[in-house]
Design a protein around this nucleic acid. Structure first.
Lengths: 242, 242
DNA sequence: GGCAACAATAATTTATATATTTCTTGGAAA
DNA sequence: TTTCCAAGAAATATATAAATTATTGTTGCC
């Protein structure tokens, strides 16, 4: 019984309910940009695409609304959350504020174990190629996963689950912006050096340096996306959201 | 059948959806403690109590899970989020960090309009009795509403919707703790003086003072609740959560 | 006589309810 | 103690009801 249950969970159903499965799939499609910002999410389209019925879909859409990836207009259905320059600026500003706070607290509570985790996370990230192809950009899921682990480890010692969850939400929302303009942003920077510099500052107990490097890291990412005319081209009323 | 259903919908819920209505009612019952922490939320009980069907209920429960007031165990239904000393400490710590940040940013972006809003909020709160009865405590919903407005106004000038939403979530979760031990905490403090002191510091542009007063305000509230043996009495494993 | 605006109806779509299936859990028997 | 069966609860699917939007037709005004 233990073995069968464990096997089933491990092999057949990573997420056991239909609602969780479709949540994961929808989330991936939203983050990758396959479901483009502002698009109406019609039930008929969703049930056909994801091969499930309305009930688990509504459940997944409600969770995604809480994550800020989907917008729910009362009596008018669901929409992919829109993007705007203003939102990108605000999200980045908030992330810089909150992660600076979390990083300082992480460092204030520093332990050898945490420092070793950070060293490992940076090492693994550094030796993984960002793009699967060298001539043009092709997203490497393993790099994305390790990148996420690195940033989560940075703030992972702050001692607040809720603060980390909030940082995770901001990261998700900003990840979507990053993916939408990833091709053009590809060759211009050496993010690996930036990650290493942050880690070095943390291990040297230089909190001010670490925070400055981290915020610059996020700000530069935002600046590159903001310069991308293509993404925001279609939007007329840039800052407004209903 | 059709007519009665239409009448009920028309009279009880003029414009909103069933899901939003039951969300509001459930939220109120969770925050007030009428639905006690750890309690299993069985569908049958919920449908009978709130006179609605499973679908809008699942929708409401999913939203409340995102708010941290309900816990969802896969394939095992929904439970009222449990409470613990450790969680109270962590939530308070996080709220102090994040609201300090938000208050500093609010003050850095200060405008005469915002200062006037704050003055008004404090004035209205101060002239509203906290308890409906003077001999014993009886919750005054108007005071609670104005209290919330005051604290929201404090951080309302920070320029980040997402940061304010996060503060609101933390406030909700902590409000539940406060309500659970409100009777004993009633006579001991003069919270009105504390609010006025915070406002004075803000209007005097004394950011450090304002932040110190605000964090002390939250910390003292938590300390009073932590001393309450009754609330946490039943819990064996204090800090653990599944 | 033609064009525009408003209203009404129909179609599409969301929201709710009920029924069915699947999963978990507890109890009994081997 | 372990396994199987039954009962109950949760998750999903389908059907029904309600609401919004779009299109068409009619009427009024230019």
């Amino acid at each position: 019984m233990v073995t069968t249950s464990a096997l089933r969970l491990a092999s057949v159903t990573p997420s056991s309910t239909q609602a969780s499965t479709v949540y994961d799939r929808l989330r991936e499609d939203l983050l990758s940009g396959r479901l483009e910002p502002g698009r109406k999410l019609q039930m008929r389209f969703l049930t056909e695409t994801y091969q499930t019925s309305q009930t688990p879909l509504r459940e997944a859409l409600n969770r995604l609304t809480a994550d800020g990836l989907v917008e729910c207009r009362e009596q008018r259905g669901f929409y992919v959350a829109d993007i705007s320059r203003n939102e990108l600026i605000e999200l980045t500003k908030t992330r810089c504020w909150v992660e600076s706070l979390a990083l300082r607290e992480s460092m204030a509570a520093s332990t050898p174990q945490w420092e070793e985790l950070l060293l490992l996370a940076q090492h693994r990230l550094a030796r993984t190629p960002r793009s699967l192809k060298s001539e043009h950009f092709e997203d490497n899921p393993e790099w994305e996963r390790l990148h996420r682990v690195f940033h989560r480890t940075l703030i992972g010692n702050c001692g607040s689950q809720s603060l980390m969850a909030f940082c995770g939400q901001l990261a998700d929302q900003l990840y979507r912006y990053r993916r939408l303009s990833i091709q053009r942003a590809f060759p211009s920077r050496h993010v690996s050096d930036e990650h290493q510099a942050i880690m070095t500052a943390v291990l040297s107990k230089e909190a001010d340096d670490a925070v400055a490097l981290l915020t610059t890291h996020y700000q530069q990412t935002a600046d590159v996306i903001l310069q991308d005319q293509q993404i925001f081209r279609e939007l007329q009323n840039d800052g407004e959201r209903a």
